[in-house]
């Protein structure tokens, strides 16, 4: 054809399991590719024929509204055939092992598997035991790479860059795969990362990643360009890491008086679903500084970019 295929190494990658081992160049390629993908979502005809004939299956062992739907629509907008395994009504409930379930799905011929699992490392295990490409849509408390990619895309869209930005991540850092993937990704681009939350929810060793730990919300937010507020995961809160939601919101709920300490035109991100009045005040959630709704659209764009980049080329050419 008339245009040259600019060589990129991205789809030599079989799987995307986390941002920890993804290069800056790959991340930039995904973010740049997401720009034209976002244009498609805004069109009257939201479909391109790119992945015609490719199959994608989503398997979520944990609940999800936006991530699963986002992947499914991203696949559909690119003309892939998408299917979802509803784990709660599947043979998993009859005691089928993870490995057997995945093998069964693989034999139906999809090219890519999007998987969420409550166990850290489950997608890694699956990736080693299947010829399908695997995208991690969240594993336990480890990583949620596509969430971090859409956060980075949203930040870059508003700030024009990532390098040198000050980013505060607030909440339950210990259990947050969103925080972990954001830290891996943002650190690669030279962002100054601070985290704030109850001491019981800050994992040890963050300083090795260059992250500054604050136990006071105001210290974390002073002069930052971006505040990423995490959801208090009530489903992971049975162990009494903080006394009560009331106390948590008293100390760590993001309110307008905190945000006034941040840099001019600071933006607020939240991966959703939001707990109004727990980790974020309604004033902020509904204000112009919050880009929470845009993040949802950007999530579809970033996942379209990823599916396009990963599903090109023939499968036998992929280095496992």
């Amino acid at each position: 054809m008339g245009i040259s295929a600019q060589s990129t190494q991205f789809n030599r990658r079989k799987d995307l399991l986390g941002l920890k081992d993804v290069s800056n160049e790959e991340i930039e390629l995904i973010l740049n590719t997401a720009i034209p993908m976002k244009d498609i979502i805004g069109r009257e005809i939201k479909k391109v024929p790119t992945l015609r004939g490719k199959g994608m299956i989503t398997v979520f062992y944990e609940n999800s509204t936006r991530t699963r739907t986002s992947f499914e629509l991203a696949g559909k907008y690119l003309s892939a055939d998408t299917s979802n395994l509803a784990v709660s009504t599947s043979s998993v409930q009859k005691g089928e092992t993870l490995r057997d379930t995945i093998k069964t799905l693989e034999m139906m011929g999809p090219d890519i598997l999007v998987m969420r699992h409550g166990m850290t490392g489950a997608p890694h295990y699956v990736a080693q035991n299947t010829s399908m490409r695997v995208i991690n849509a969240g594993d336990g408390t480890n990583e949620h790479p596509t969430q971090a990619l859409l956060d980075m895309f949203s930040i870059r869209e508003h700030k024009g860059r990532l390098a040198g930005l000050k980013v505060a991540i607030v909440g339950d850092i210990l259990h947050s795969r969103v925080a972990r993937s954001n830290i891996y990704g943002l650190a690669k681009f030279g962002c100054e990362i601070r985290v704030a939350g109850p001491p019981t929810m800050i994992p040890p060793g963050l300083d090795h990643l260059g992250v500054k730990v604050c136990f006071n919300l105001k210290d974390a937010i002073r002069d930052v360009d971006v505040v990423n507020v995490l959801r208090i995961q009530r489903e992971r809160q049975q162990t009494g890491l903080f006394p009560s939601l009331e106390e948590y919101s008293e100390l760590y709920m993001l309110r307008p008086e905190h945000l006034s300490l941040a840099a001019d035109n600071a933006i607020v991100l939240h991966p959703g679903p939001i707990n109004r009045g727990v980790e974020i005040s309604t004033d902020i959630a509904d204000s112009d500084t919050a880009v929470i709704n845009e993040q949802v659209t950007n999530g579809v764009a970033v996942r379209m970019a990823l599916l396009f980049l990963m599903m090109g080329g023939r499968r036998d050419e992929i280095a496992a």
């Binding site: 245009i3 040259s4 295929a5 600019q6 060589s7 990129t8 190494q9 991205f10 789809n11 030599r12 390629l29 740049n32 590719t33 720009i35 034209p36 993908m37 244009d39 004939g53 970019a305 396009f308 980049l309 090109g312 080329g313 023939r314 050419e317």
Partner: peptide
């Protein structure tokens, strides 16, 4: 699908 590497998509 015949290309080893995906070409860059622009707007």
């Amino acid at each position: 699908t015949a290309l080893a590497n995906q070409p860059q998509v622009h707007r």
